[in-house]
C-alpha cells in the first residue's frame, strides 16, 4: 500500500492505496464521490472524465498513485453555494441529457474544452467531445448546451 495525498474539489485528501487502484475507484469508493461514472472501463466512452491539474482525463485509465499531489476536479466540484455551474444549467435548460449517465463526463470534458479555446463553433465542440459517447444519441442538444455555457462563461456580466 502507498500513501497518496491529493486535492479534490479544493479539499485535501490522504489515502492508502494499492498501486493497482484506479483513480476512478479511489474517488468513488474511498472518497464517496460517485458523481464520476464508470461506463466502458476501457478509456473509450469518457463517462469517467475528470480534470487533473486542469486537464480533462479519463479516470478509469489512471492509477491513483499517478495522481499523487495532483489537483482534481470532479462534477461535484462545479456547483457553488447551491448555484449550478453554467454548464450544468445549460445542460438542464437545453435537454442536454436524457438518461444522464454520460453527463458528468460530458460536462467535465466541455469545461476543459471551453477553458482552452476562445472561440468554438459547433464543429469544434463535436470534435472536442469525440472522447465522450452518449448512448441516448443526444448530441444535438449537448452541442447546444456547451455553446450556451461557453457564451455565458466568457461574458458572465451579460447573464
Amino acid at each position: 500500500m502507498r500513501r497518496i495525498s491529493l486535492t479534490v474539489n479544493g479539499v485535501q485528501h490522504e489515502g492508502m492505496v494499492e498501486p493497482r487502484q484506479l483513480l476512478v475507484y479511489f474517488l468513488r469508493e474511498q472518497l464517496g464521490l460517485t458523481g464520476t461514472n464508470v461506463g466502458c472501463d476501457t478509456s473509450t466512452c469518457g463517462a469517467c472524465t475528470i480534470l487533473v491539474n486542469g486537464n480533462a482525463a479519463k479516470s478509469c485509465t489512471l492509477l491513483a498513485v499517478q495522481a499523487d499531489g495532483a489537483e482534481i476536479t470532479t462534477i461535484e466540484g462545479l456547483a457553488s453555494n447551491g448555484e449550478m455551474h453554467p454548464l450544468q444549467k445549460a445542460f438542464h435548460e437545453n435537454h442536454g441529457l436524457q438518461c444522464g449517465y454520460c453527463t458528468p463526463g460530458m460536462i467535465m470534458a466541455s469545461l476543459d474544452l471551453i477553458a482552452n479555446n476562445d472561440d468554438l463553433n459547433d464543429e469544434d465542440v463535436r470534435i472536442g467531445l469525440e472522447g465522450n459517447l452518449c448512448r441516448c444519441t443526444g448530441y444535438q442538444n449537448i452541442v447546444k448546451s456547451v455553446q450556451q455555457a461557453a457564451g455565458e462563461m466568457r461574458s458572465p456580466a451579460s447573464t
Partner: peptide, 9 residues
C-alpha cells in the same frame, strides 16, 4: 491519436 483526454496523458 485517441481524443483530447488521451492526448493529455
Amino acid at each position: 491519436i485517441g481524443d483530447r483526454q488521451v492526448r493529455h496523458f
